[in-house]
Design a protein around this nucleic acid. Structure first.
Lengths: 204, 204
DNA sequence: GTCTATATGCTGATAGAC
DNA sequence: GTCTATCAGCATATAGAC
């Protein structure tokens, strides 16, 4: 890994726990193992490091087919559009994948925490945060559940409300099991419970 | 309002948008209209201001009967325990009250934003955040929906999953309509939609 | 309880040697 | 592309006059 990549890496770790203002250029340089002055050969300012992180994440999200945030989110859509529909257990497995991705993916988890911290000081950051974790996710899943209602896999009259009922508990548990010493396995268990309740409610 | 109260007031406003580290003692003093050195006659350190805010909020939350966060949250419980049960419209009105309280209450809204920002840098803050906005809320509502299932107001097998299905969308929309220029009325509309869907799903 | 003055250290950033 | 040296500004906090 190049020094520039290391800087981005360590900066993201620090920004996601202490925040942008709570992290000094010296902190980042020390984590990388160079002097703070050397860091300016790679980035012209602290702000440029932050912007590079945001651009890098946008690039990675774009690389995934939809902004649901899944490396393989097409599997759900394919399942829904295919003959047999999606089973309850498939939905459980899929939800856990989304959950663990946003929580533990080496980049995505820290990035989400960073945006959570920084959203209130900058309108642009707030817009990015809402787009990724709220608007895009809900929009995509609304289409998905709309399809599944039409195919008779689920009952329901309001695909959007259904999408929120599916995604909001994931978002809620993500924020709950986000801290330092919280147990991820408890989170997965609670998530499974919610997904099974979701299926019980909406199944035909 | 005393100078000390003004300091707490202005500090909360600044902490909730720029964060603790992003706010200087001078910023706070300027907002109050005094010199930064004068501020130290009221608080011995910047950290003490922060701690005073947290204690003040804990005191206010305690003053309300339950940590659901409602000034008059008993109304729902009473309704549930009374003869007729709670109507759909009553649940909509109640949800909007909770939503607007956490979003716009002069103290609660800024306090929630402050904890959201500061949760990752300190385990104690994270614990307070989770207790207030997750554990207490869910625990209280689990009891509530358990009662309502027993009384035959709602169908359901898992009161806890039901509580999460009721509260998670509120939490999600709270975070969504939290930013600077987002429209609160849109949030209320979306909330009402979710509550009506909730009732549709769980009504007997 | 406000002010001015001051101490001390850290901040982001630059210049220039190697 | 790393280092040392240096800068001006701002941070938290204290001392002491009024």
């Amino acid at each position: 890994m190049s020094t520039k990549e290391q800087i981005v890496e360590e900066a993201l770790t620090l920004f996601s726990s202490r925040g942008y203002q709570g992290t000094s250029v010296k902190n980042i340089a020390e984590a990388v193992g160079i002097k703070d002055s050397s860091l300016y050969k790679h980035f012209k300012s602290k702000k440029e490091i932050f912007e590079t992180i945001v651009e890098e994440m946008a690039r990675r999200m774009e690389a995934m087919s939809h902004t649901f945030g899944l490396p393989d989110d097409t599997s759900m859509e394919e399942a829904a559009l295919a003959y047999g529909g999606i089973t309850e257990n498939e939905l459980v497995v899929l939800s856990k994948k989304v959950f663990l991705f946003y929580l533990q993916d080496p980049f995505a988890g820290r990035f989400r925490r960073m945006l959570t911290i920084e959203q209130y000081r900058d309108k642009e950051i707030a817009a990015v945060y809402r787009k990724i974790y709220m608007e895009d996710s809900i929009r995509y899943q609304t289409v998905l559940f709309g399809d599944m209602i039409r195919q008779g896999i689920f009952s329901g009259t309001d695909a959007r409300a259904m999408a929120v009922n599916f995604y909001a508990p994931i978002f809620f548990l993500l924020n709950k099991y986000d801290g330092g010493d919280s147990n991820v396995e408890d989170g997965l268990e609670e998530l499974e419970r919610q997904v099974r309740e979701f299926v019980r409610i909406y199944q035909k």
